[in-house]
Amino acid sequence: MLEGKVKWFNSEKGFGFIEVEGQDDVFVHFSAIQGEGFKTLEEGQAVSFEIVEGNRGPQAANVTKEA
């Protein structure tokens, strides 16, 4: 699992990017966010995740919000 911070997330469109120190930003789709209820992320929020190869390159999977 990697750790990063949410760079930005558009809850209307359901996607955004996660910043990872020393690496390129990683695309995140709302469907990759773990948990119940409305799936969104806040700018600057700490998250842990895995990287998988998507249709358009690397993207986040199994995203969990850090306490």
Score class of each variant (00 low, 15 high):
A61W: 14
F15V: 08
G22T: 08
S48V: 12
I33M: 04
W8D: 02
R56Y: 15
E53R: 12
A32S: 13
M1K: 15
V6T: 06
P58C: 04
V28D: 00
V63W: 00
F27W: 09
Q59T: 07
E50H: 15
K7N: 04
P58T: 13
E3W: 09
G57E: 03
G44H: 07
G44P: 03
E19Y: 12
E53W: 11
D24H: 13
K7I: 08
G16D: 00
K13E: 05
Q23L: 14
V52H: 12
E42N: 15
F15Y: 13
D24G: 15
Q23R: 12
N10D: 10
K5N: 09
A32E: 09
S48D: 06
Q23N: 10
T64K: 10
K5C: 04
I51K: 08
I33L: 10
A67F: 10
Q34N: 14
N10V: 07
I51E: 03
S11H: 12
N62R: 08
E53K: 15
S31E: 06
V28F: 11
F27Y: 05
K65W: 14
F49T: 02
V20W: 13
V6G: 01
E50V: 14
A60N: 00
A32R: 03
V28L: 07
L2M: 13
S11V: 08
M1F: 08
Q34E: 08
F17I: 06
K65I: 11
V47I: 10
A46M: 09
A61S: 07
V47D: 00
A60R: 00
K65D: 06
Q34M: 07
E21G: 10
W8T: 03
M1Q: 13
G54R: 12
I51D: 01
V63S: 01
N10K: 12
N62L: 13
N62V: 11
G4M: 01
E66M: 13
G54L: 09
S48K: 14
A61I: 13
H29R: 03
F9N: 00
T64A: 14
Q23S: 09
V28A: 03
V52T: 15
K7Y: 03
K7E: 02
G37N: 09
W8G: 02
A61H: 14
G16F: 01
V20L: 08
I33P: 01
Q45A: 15
H29I: 05
